[in-house]
Amino acid sequence: MSIIEDVKHDYKFKVVLLGEGAVGKSSLVMRYVKNKFTSRHLSTIQASFQTQKIQIDDDEVELNIWDTAGQEKYHALGPIYYRGSNGVLLIFDVTDQRSFEKVKMWVRELRATLGNSAVLMIVGNKIDMENERTVSRETAEEYAKTENAFYSETSAKENIGISTAFETLTEKMIEHNKENARNAPPIANRSIQLIDENERNSSIRTKKAKCC
């Protein structure tokens, strides 16, 4: 699996990051797309957009990544960004129990709005602060299973697990896309009747003769 340049994509997926403010959503995106990290917290205003091209086995994929604001005052804007998404990364801070509860709220909202149309991945960030952890990996994994979501852990600061999280999500989106294609109802068979032009003209002349 590798990041690639200038390719003809087989897939184009919309990915949205949701979560409480200051959990590291923007840091994850910047580390993944540009391999940059800053310890200075910069609040996202509404949303920002990044594009990344990757290759998963023989599939070439363009990820359109939306990083949304975590502040409560922007919560109502969430549906604008996650509607039509193929995958959602729900980020929480492993040292902040409240941010984990916020993820649960987002999961309920997404299931109510999107059903199972999008792949959900819950991500515990800031594992470099293990000694301050308040949400165990086992607890988060168990919750993810109950919601038919996937789970991963990362550290934007130490660049741990970020590529794995995005690539795993992409693999699951590809699988989901292929499964939907397999389960799509077949296009109804349509029959086309070919009419010989000479026979058609002969039939018209016969009808005219009968009228006379």
Rank of each mutant, 00 (worst) to 15 (best):
D58V: 14
F100I: 03
F92S: 01
T51Y: 09
R111D: 08
I54D: 06
G78L: 05
F92A: 01
V61L: 08
E101K: 13
S99F: 05
I45N: 08
R40S: 12
G78E: 01
Q55F: 09
K102E: 12
L114F: 11
Y74R: 03
K102V: 11
E101S: 13
A76K: 13
K104N: 08
Y82I: 09
L77G: 05
L77Y: 07
G87H: 00
G84T: 11
L42A: 09
S48V: 15
P79D: 06
Y82Q: 06
D57A: 14
D67R: 00
G87M: 00
D67P: 01
Q55K: 15
E109M: 07
R108Y: 05
T68E: 02
F100T: 01
K73G: 10
Q50D: 07
I45T: 14
I65T: 02
W66D: 01
F100G: 00
Y82H: 08
A76L: 10
I56R: 04
E72F: 12
D57M: 13
Y81K: 09
A69W: 01
W66V: 05
S48P: 04
H75R: 15
I80E: 09
I65Q: 00
A69Y: 03
I56E: 05
T51M: 14
L42V: 13
R40Q: 11
H41T: 10
L63Y: 02
R40Y: 10
V94Y: 00
R111P: 03
A69T: 06
Q97M: 12
T68A: 04
Q46V: 15
A47M: 15
D58K: 15
E101F: 08
V94N: 00
D96F: 03
D96R: 03
G115M: 06
K73R: 15
Q55D: 09
L114M: 15
D57G: 12
G87N: 01
G115S: 09
G70Q: 05
E62V: 14
A76G: 10
Q52V: 05
I80Q: 15
M105E: 13
E60C: 14
E60S: 15
D57E: 14
A76I: 11
N64D: 13
H41Y: 15
L77P: 05
N116G: 13
H41S: 12
V61E: 04
L114N: 11
T113L: 07
R83Y: 03
D67N: 03
G70A: 08
Q50I: 02
Q71W: 02
I91V: 15
G115Y: 04
E62F: 08
Q97K: 14
G70T: 03
I56D: 04
H75V: 07
I65S: 00
Q50N: 10
Q52D: 04
W66E: 02
E62K: 15
R98H: 11
G87W: 00
H41N: 11
L114Y: 08
S99T: 12
A47E: 10
I54C: 11
